[in-house]
Simulated scan of single mutants.
Amino acid sequence: MPQRPVRKPARPFFSSGPCAKRPGWTLNALDGALLGRSHRAPEGRARLKEVIDRSHSLLEAPGDWKIGIVPASDTGAVEMILWALAGERPVDVLSFESFSGLWAQDLRDVLKLDALTVHEAPYGALPDLSTVDWSHDVVLTWNGTTSGVCVPGADAIPAQHDGLVICDATSAAFAMDLPWDRLDVVTWSWQKALGGEAAHGMIALSPRAVARLEQASPRPLPKIFRLTNKKGLIDAIFSGDTINTPSMLCVEDALDGLRWADAIGGLKALKIRSRANFEAVARWVAQTDWVEFLAAEPSQRSTTSICLRIVAPWFAEQDIATQQKIVKTLTGLIADEGAGFDLASYRDAPPGLRIWGGATVETDDIEALLPWLDWAYESVRMEYSV
């Protein structure tokens, strides 16, 4: 039996959503929650508007962009804009992991767009961005939460493009640079990079996106998807008047995360913390012979959803079901020790590991986790290899 490590992470929470709470978080952070009050009351609207304003400032979004709170997390935000706009002009969509694949599936099989081009790539890679037609509307996921593959930078998108660029940024916002001057719609959720509670999404619209929404011939939509009415954009959504009833407990938690981020130095500090977490994993991968990054191209490796594949020959010889069982056993050993939770890859991804490296995770905890991965690997290797 391999030697069991001694040191454990102080906060062994590495889930890629909902993600770890910010350092020092306790339930006392929610003491000021506006419970038992209406979100339509002036105080409720003020809290919701504060989430919007703080998000706008922290993300360094342009002043003329509109940001609003919408139902159903990032999924709701993406679906809302696709149902509102898709089909006004041809659409190109990047499909390279679970959620980007879902957007492609919805555009193709549910909305049944005639003028649709799906650019596909397997887990661990991005589609060839040079084949994208930027005169079309383009739907892309900035960071593949389930693959650990991200868009390498602003230059991937032309500065001038005729269509709208619709960006699912849920595991990139608050951790990576987003080129606001090259995007038109950006979505994210509270449950990712700042560790907020689930169920609420955010949508940011450029002036070009607002103009398209107001000029579009909308398809019939349920109330929770409507961003416009006969008068144009529903501006109230972007000042704290939410479409449906939000949880004021979740609102307070979102504010706590945003205030913490401001207190430690804003977006720059968040990116530094996430990069340090990634680099700790990268150093370990470089000296470990049984694991590699799922993302083959270094410039495309995510600093938040750090996805790893097991490359040991004995593991590769197993069928997928057995590989999944091995990963479940490996991560279960670590969880049983209280040394790390939620470390298995996403259910649709290749069997492997996934470590959340966003800014709410401490690098010391990442470093304390890594010997446990080696320990658990050696434990299962002894059982399965011959």
Rank of each mutant, 00 (worst) to 15 (best):
260 W>P: 00
230 K>S: 14
203 I>C: 08
205 L>A: 04
225 F>T: 06
219 R>Y: 06
236 A>G: 11
278 F>R: 12
260 W>V: 00
258 L>A: 02
225 F>E: 12
269 A>S: 15
248 M>E: 01
284 W>Y: 13
281 V>Q: 03
201 G>T: 00
261 A>N: 13
198 A>H: 01
274 S>I: 03
200 H>G: 06
256 D>E: 12
218 P>Y: 04
283 R>Q: 12
249 L>G: 07
245 T>N: 15
251 V>T: 10
255 L>P: 00
238 F>L: 09
198 A>M: 05
283 R>P: 02
252 E>G: 00
222 P>A: 08
215 Q>P: 03
231 K>Q: 14
206 S>E: 05
284 W>P: 06
201 G>N: 03
239 S>R: 15
224 I>H: 15
277 N>Y: 05
208 R>F: 00
282 A>P: 01
199 A>F: 07
254 A>M: 15
233 L>M: 09
196 G>P: 00
281 V>P: 05
211 A>Q: 11
244 N>D: 14
264 I>S: 02
278 F>N: 08
209 A>L: 01
264 I>V: 15
256 D>M: 03
259 R>E: 11
246 P>E: 02
275 R>P: 05
217 S>H: 10
248 M>I: 08
269 A>P: 05
211 A>T: 12
212 R>V: 10
218 P>D: 04
220 P>I: 10
199 A>I: 03
286 A>D: 14
275 R>W: 07
244 N>K: 13
258 L>M: 12
229 N>A: 07
268 K>N: 11
273 R>Q: 15
